[in-house]
């Protein structure tokens, strides 16, 4: 195995990506792209509030696009990279401090507010679980990996069915909020990891990031809330 490693490390890209900085660069880049996906995904999903027919039309359009498999494959790569690296960096980070402190206190100003950055791995794992559940609910259970869109399908009805489920609805609500919490740090952190940190832009990006997290979290959570908790 070691010679495989050595051979791979002869490549400049592998070598760069295998450093801690390289890993964070890739995590930042994949994270940002995934944020882009979240925006598109949320925009599509929110159509359900306009009526089931709008939602179905959007689903149809999406699934009739022949490039969808390419996009999905790309998304899969982004997810896998982001997740794999989160596990490798997290385990390296744990190993970097074998003996912990008796008690550790932040010196950051801003006091006791819960910092999302301290829970990135935990929230990331929760988001991963939620994503798998969501995929099995929406992508595999209903669409069955069919490439051709079948006019008999009614994705909106299926979505509403899931959102009205007494177990799924709270899970979707919480999952959405955790996702929002995760990206509220991830969005701005990605810029820093990619090398953008400047007194001119960073304060703005930090605020934008929190707003982004809130928008994503509340945006996705609005659906289970509206259909299950508000009883529509």
């Amino acid at each position: 195995m070691n010679w495989v490693r050595q051979t791979l490390l002869r490549n400049w890209l592998v070598r760069a990506i295998s450093t801690t900085i390289g890993q964070k660069l890739v995590m930042g880049a994949t994270g940002l792209l995934l944020c882009g996906f979240l925006v598109a995904h949320l925009a599509g999903n929110l159509l359900i509030f306009q009526g089931t027919e709008h939602y179905n039309r959007y689903a149809k359009m999406l699934h009739e696009n022949e490039l969808l498999p390419v996009a999905e494959a790309g998304l899969l790569v982004l997810f896998v990279l982001h997740i794999l690296l989160s596990f490798t960096t997290a385990s390296a980070n744990t190993a970097a401090r074998p003996i912990g402190y008796y008690g550790k206190h932040s010196k950051l100003s801003g006091g006791t507010f819960v910092h999302a950055h301290n829970y990135m791995f935990l929230t990331g794992v929760l988001v991963l679980g939620f994503t798998l559940l969501h995929l099995s609910d929406m992508r595999f259970a209903h669409l069955n990996l069919r490439l051709k869109y079948d006019s008999t399908l009614d994705p909106a009805a299926h979505a509403l069915h899931v959102l009205h489920d007494p177990i799924s609805a709270p899970v979707y609500l919480l999952g959405s909020l955790v996702l929002g919490f995760h990206v509220s740090h991830g969005f701005q952190s990605a810029f820093k990891s990619l090398g953008l940190n400047h007194p001119k832009y960073t304060p703005f990006l930090s605020k934008l990031s929190i707003l982004f997290g809130i928008a994503i979290g509340l945006g996705f959570a609005s659906m289970p809330f509206w259909y299950y908790f508000a009883g529509h």
Binding site: T20, A92, S189, K192, S193
Partner: peptide, 19 residues
């Protein structure tokens, strides 16, 4: 490369170092 070899962790942009 040397920093990694020494066994330090990676940065998650928490800014605790700056503080």
């Amino acid at each position: 490369a040397q920093m990694d070899k020494e066994g330090f962790g990676s940065c998650t942009n928490t800014s605790e170092c700056e503080a």
